[in-house]
């Protein structure tokens, strides 16, 4: 580090004094500016109602998505029917279990219940 001459020290001190003065006496915010800033804030502020809506619970949001309690009822009924058909398919329908296990289409269209339908093979002995 280079040593400073006495003049340089006093020049540094003078600059520091100027900067200190600037720090302690910042320009005052004009009233008109504050008023404009607050008017902008009012204009673009989100309304409390708009903020409250998305904060409702996950369940009510899902329920709204499928059409309220009527929609939910229909969805539950359809799900139960699907489970029942999957569990014990009518004769006219191909066996979904056989499809998943990779049976040939011809086998499926004939009676394909021996492995995948519930206990029929045992009953027929």
């Amino acid at each position: 580090m280079t040593m400073k001459k006495p003049d340089e020290h006093s020049e540094d001190a003078a600059l520091d004094a100027l900067l200190d003065a600037a720090r302690t006496a910042p320009p005052e915010v004009p009233d008109a500016l504050m008023a404009r800033v607050l008017a902008d804030a009012d204009r673009v502020q989100p309304s409390p109602a708009a903020r409250a809506a998305p904060s409702s619970g996950l369940w009510s949001r899902i329920s709204d998505l499928v059409g309220g309690w009527r929609g939910m009822g229909g969805l539950v009924a359809a799900t139960c029917a699907g489970v029942w058909i999957g569990w014990s398919p009518p004769d006219a329908l191909p066996d979904a279990g056989a499809l998943i296990l990779g049976y040939e289409a011809a086998d499926i269209l004939s009676n394909t219940a021996e492995l995948t339908s519930f206990g029929w093979d045992v009953e027929e002995g």
Binding site: V37, P46, A50
Partner: peptide, 22 residues
């Protein structure tokens, strides 16, 4: 402010606007 508090903007502006303007 984002939740709609009407006094928040005034309080925050009083604090930060002098620094922004300066």
């Amino acid at each position: 402010y984002a939740e709609g508090d009407p006094a928040a903007a005034r309080a925050l502006s009083a604090r930060v606007l002098p620094r922004v303007y300066a």
